[in-house]
Design a binder for these strands. Structure first.
Length: 601
RNA sequence: GCCGAAGUAGCUCAGUGGCCAGAGCAACGGUUUUGUAAACCGUUGGCCGUGGGUUCGACUCCCACCUUCGGCUCCA
């Protein structure tokens, strides 16, 4: 039996206690699976009716009763065939299916035994381990949190069951702390802050998943764009810009049309008459365009436009490329998952002997980028293929070769990473950067991929030193996988209080009264002329009110100017966090913040 | 796309079958001319998400659709 921390055992046992409670409430319930998860547990059920939120309270009560009764949780190991008979008799088709799956993966079916746990009058199939009795659970440290649908075995073609989620801890204070953290997370939600600070907006009229960057959000985006372009130039990148629509044939060549079809917007057919053929002035030639879901094919055209020499390699071509992907409606969320987004994308064409260095160079850039942002909580995920899925382009042999190279490079350079089977893109394995948002949800924000597929499909080549034609390697990378998703993450990470160098409003000038408006404007133009994102709050509202508004907008510095300041050519500086920083000469203040901006504070 | 919940003023929310649908903040007008987190008075603002139905009567009940949220699936 594998050892596990006690809290995990508690959570797992609680999943069973929940099932027992559901069994009490619905004797006809059919049971799916119920594991422990981070912070809690869930269990999937096939029930005679749809659950409503009030049911959770009832079930919680039943769970507490089961805990109070301190039932023993007893293990029994029985032959698989016998277990199948048992679960058939009690009308538990999902459990029967699970045992049959086990049998399928075992050589000697006859010798297979499965373990079951009995809890009062409820028996469940489970490998354990479990608590000895329900009394070990702290009834005050648990809460059923939500009901949702979940496909049986995670397969969208299979039946949807009802899933109940719960959270559980060893102590009541831990539960309270967790619930408080969730409430806090709600306040940090990028959707909420995005609205409050007017960073971005979604309009039903424009379309689902097609967000608009509002002025303040766009300011931040421009800073990031400039930063990335400068960073890439310093590493020898050149940049291009390719159109949003490309001919469909381009994506047939790349393989996207075949493998990515479902996620693409429907094609645009032009050149045909939609009205009366007589009146139609359009050319009769029919052409089909698609909104590009990826930047690579168009980017590759640039490499392929003329013969390339080995001397040109590595060639690094970047693009702030906007792509459109028709994600299923239920998958959309704020800026985190959208249908149109821009990538800080680039393709690196190189020789085999340059592959490792190039790969590491990208990792180096990535680390610098995150350091400048102040991020530390990210991890590298080596995303590999899964033989049981058939969504991949290319041969398994090719895949294995690339996957082995990536793994070798990572290990050789002692990089901290974890492997994830089945997380690869359909066109290649990748090294993803996973960031965790305020709700604990993990998402890829950056990605580096070695692509063996496209060089073949587009017949890429270079001439080597011996005059021979050779196939280059292609590294596909997006340090900002999507400005939209990245921004969502940034907003939540900083809770809207952006560091000075990113901040949409770095300085706000607040004249004490109307009399000092002119002086305030002078300072404002002075700062603006030095590329400081500065503004003036000159309304007739009280000073306190205007400071409050500026604080709520998370403005980094507030400059209060009145009689004293005007006479001495100074500003009274208020810091967003540390409040009063005292009075200083305007030039001195500019010097101070210019230094901070340069240091990316 | 699937399961579930929600949608009332720009924002946060009251209102559950019965007169012209409310509050606070915001916006606008006026008074105030302010010294570090909300001055005062007034005004405007709503096809109660959209369409259909039930009813003498619908924000309220029913159906469909749209959008949003929590999950599932998927993913940058």
């Amino acid at each position: 039996m594998k050892k596990q921390p006690k809290i995990e055992t508690i959570r797992h046992s609680l999943a069973h206690v929940l099932a027992a409670a559901v069994f009490e409430m619905f004797p006809d319930a059919k049971f799916g699976m119920g594991p422990a998860i981070e912070n809690g547990f869930y269990y999937d059920f096939d029930l005679p009716r749809t659950l409503i939120p009030e049911d959770l309270e009832i079930l919680e009560g039943k769970i507490r009763n089961i805990i109070k009764a301190n039932y023993k949780i007893e293990k029994a190991i029985i032959p698989a065939d016998e277990a199948i008979k048992k679960f058939r008799k009690s009308n538990q088709p999902y459990k029967v299916e699970l045992i049959k799956d086990l049998q399928k993966s075992t050589k000697d079916k006859k010798a297979l035994y499965v373990s079951c746990y009995a809890l009062h009058n409820f028996v469940d199939l489970c490998s354990g381990p479990h608590l000895k009795s329900t009394g070990e659970i702290n009834p005050k440290a648990l809460k059923l949190t939500k009901i949702s649908g979940a496909y049986w075995k995670g397969d969208e073609k299979k039946k949807m069951l009802q899933r109940i989620y719960g959270v559980a801890f060893e102590t009541e204070s831990e539960l309270k702390e967790y619930l408080r953290m969730m409430e806090d997370a709600e306040k940090r939600s990028h959707v909420k802050i995005g609205r409050e600070l007017e960073l971005f907006a979604n309009f039903a009229e424009i379309g689902q998943g097609l967000p608009v960057w509002l002025p303040k959000g766009y300011r931040i985006r421009r800073v990031l764009e400039d930063y990335m372009i400068a960073l890439e130039r310093s590493y020898g990148y050149e940049h291009i810009s390719t159109p949003h629509i490309n001919r469909k044939e381009l994506f047939e060549t790349s393989g996207h049309w075949g493998f990515y079809n479902e996620s693409m917007y429907p094609p645009l057919e032009v050149g045909q008459c939609l009205k009366d053929a007589q009146e139609c002035k359009r050319p009769k030639v029919k052409e089909t365009f698609v909104l590009k879901p990826m930047n690579c094919p168009a980017g590759i055209m640039v490499y392929n436009m003329k013969p390339r020499s080995y001397r040109e390699l590595p060639m690094k071509i970047g693009e702030l490329g906007t792509v459109y992907r028709y994600e299923k409606s239920g998958e959309l969320h704020g800026l985190q998952r959208v249908r149109g987004f821009t990538q800080n994308d680039a393709h690196i064409y190189c020789r085999e002997d340059q592959l490792e260095d190039q790969f590491l160079e990208v990792v180096e850039m990535l680390k610098k980028f995150f350091k400048d942002l102040g991020f530390t909580n990210y991890k590298f995920r080596l995303s590999l293929s899964d033989a049981s899925k058939d969504k991949y382009v290319g041969s398994p042999k090719q895949w294995k070769k690339v996957e082995d190279i990536l793994r070798k490079v990572l290990k050789k350079n002692k990089m901290d990473f974890f492997e994830a089977k089945g997380e690869a893109a359909f066109y290649g394995p990748k090294l993803d950067v996973q960031a965790v948002n305020v709700f604990g949800k993990e998402d890829s924000i950056s990605t580096i991929q070695v692509d063996f597929n496209l060089p073949e499909r587009f017949d890429l080549s270079y001439i080597d030193e011996k005059g021979k034609k050779k196939r280059p390697y292609l590294i596909h990378r997006a340090l900002i996988g999507s400005f939209e998703r990245f921004f969502a993450f940034l907003i939540e990470y900083y809770a809207g209080a952006f560091p000075l160098w990113l901040s949409p409003v770095q300085v706000e000038i607040i004249p004490v009264s109307e009399k000092f408006k002119k002086y305030g404007k002078e300072i404002n133009s002075f700062l603006s002329s030095h590329n400081i994102r500065s503004s003036i709050r000159e309304s007739s509202e009280s000073l306190g009110k205007r400071i409050r508004e500026a604080q709520k907008q998370k403005v980094n510095y507030m400059l209060v100017v009145g009689e004293k300041e005007m006479k001495a050519k100074t500003v009274a500086v208020r810091d967003r966090d540390k409040s009063d920083l005292g009075v200083m000469k305007t030039e001195k203040f500019l010097e101070k913040i210019e230094k901070e901006i340069a240091e990316k504070k």
